[in-house]
């Protein structure tokens, strides 16, 4: 079981309010991702759930019991830290066995569980090494191993992949997703990388300055962002947000259109502009187009290779059905 409910949780550090007031429900077995810009309080929220920080006000309920005052060790949660926080003077085996040793499990049972975890995580060959003798990805797996042997009711991950290189990140991302499918345990995952959020999450929680901007499945957030912040944050490259007279034509203060929802043509279209920088990825080409009458350049995605040179005149047409409209407060208009 791993159902976690945050009830009007507040957190202040001295005079600084980091989390004003927050309600959130995390269902058992869900993979929840907290995303948001740096400093928005993601780590703080995770540490509140873990019990490493005390809440200033409010309640944290884990599996139906109020855990607000329960010390971290007895909340039944396991955490994987950004710096891995392995114990440098212990071998991998001892690192993974540490929580079991603290729980005074029988040595035979400890050995069995450690070996099982090592098998799952491909660490069997490294059990007798020290953390200092492992690569970043292997250390990451040891940290995960130390979390899974406890059989916790939920895992907490704080930017676990941010120290890894791009290729390894993709690999570990898959491994963690697979682990979740197999264990079916609640996972709370903090990241500021929206690709990680989109690919792994069952449910994304978008935070800004300690406030939840929107909660929903990745596609919900992609299709129906509740406000301009979420619209700009979810999706890569970013959604184009257009203000001014062009938006007024659609009865909105701001309109948003994703790069993949704009058609580009050399002959005719709604907006006329000139091509600036183009980014060729092979599978797609991204053009930055400065349109007449718009303040900001628009990003446009064209599938495959498109040979359009710098300074060329083009015409853009947004697909009406994919256009998002926002009012003066930045909230979505349906």
């Amino acid at each position: 079981m791993g159902r976690i409910v945050l009830d009007q949780v507040k957190k202040r550090f001295g005079d600084v309010t980091v989390i004003p007031e927050l309600d959130l429900e995390i269902e058992d077995g869900e993979f929840v991702v907290f995303v948001g810009p740096s400093g928005c309080g993601k780590s703080t929220l995770l540490r509140l759930i873990a019990g490493l920080e005390d809440v200033t006000d409010g309640k944290i309920v884990i599996d139906g019991t109020d855990a607000t005052e329960v010390p971290p060790a007895r909340r039944g949660l396991a955490m994987v830290f950004q710096s891995y926080a392995l114990y440098p003077h212990m071998s991998v085996r001892k690192n993974i066995a540490f929580p079991l040793r603290m729980a005074r499990l029988a040595p035979a049972e400890q050995k069995r569980r450690v070996e099982q975890a090592a098998e799952v995580l491909n660490l069997t060959d490294y059990l007798d090494r020290r953390p200092g003798q492992l690569s970043g990805g292997q250390r990451q797996r040891v940290a995960i191993g130390r979390a899974i042997v406890r059989e916790p009711s939920a895992f907490l991950f704080d930017e676990p992949l941010s120290n890894l290189d791009a290729a390894l990140r993709v690999g570990m991302r898959l491994e963690i997703s697979e682990l979740h499918k197999r264990l079916k345990t609640t996972m709370i995952y903090v990241t500021h990388d929206q690709v990680e959020a989109m690919t792994m999450a069952d449910k994304i929680v978008v935070l800004q300055a300690g406030v939840i901007e929107q909660v929903g499945s990745p596609l919900e957030l992609y299709r129906r962002p509740r406000n301009t912040f979420v619209a700009g944050f979810i999706g890569s490259p970013k959604m184009n947000l257009i203000c001014g007279p062009e938006a007024a034509k659609h009865d909105a203060t701001t309109i948003g259109i994703r790069p993949e929802h704009i058609d580009i043509s050399e002959t005719d279209g709604a907006w006329k502009g000139t091509i600036g920088v183009s980014e060729h990825l092979g599978s797609d080409t991204f053009f930055h187009v400065q349109c007449d009458g718009l303040a900001e350049p628009l990003t446009v995605r064209a599938p495959g290779e498109r040979a359009l040179s710098y300074g060329a005149d083009v015409h853009l047409t947004p697909r009406r059905e994919h256009m998002h409209r926002f009012d003066a407060q930045g909230l979505r208009i349906d």
Binding site: G51, L52, A73, M79, F81, A85, L86, Y87, P99, M102
Partner: peptide
């Protein structure tokens, strides 16, 4: 000493003496 190590140990159920 990296404070995350102590926090990790705390979450792993190690009391102050341990």
């Amino acid at each position: 000493l990296d404070s995350e190590q102590l926090e990790a140990a705390e979450m792993d159920g190690a009391p102050a003496f341990a």
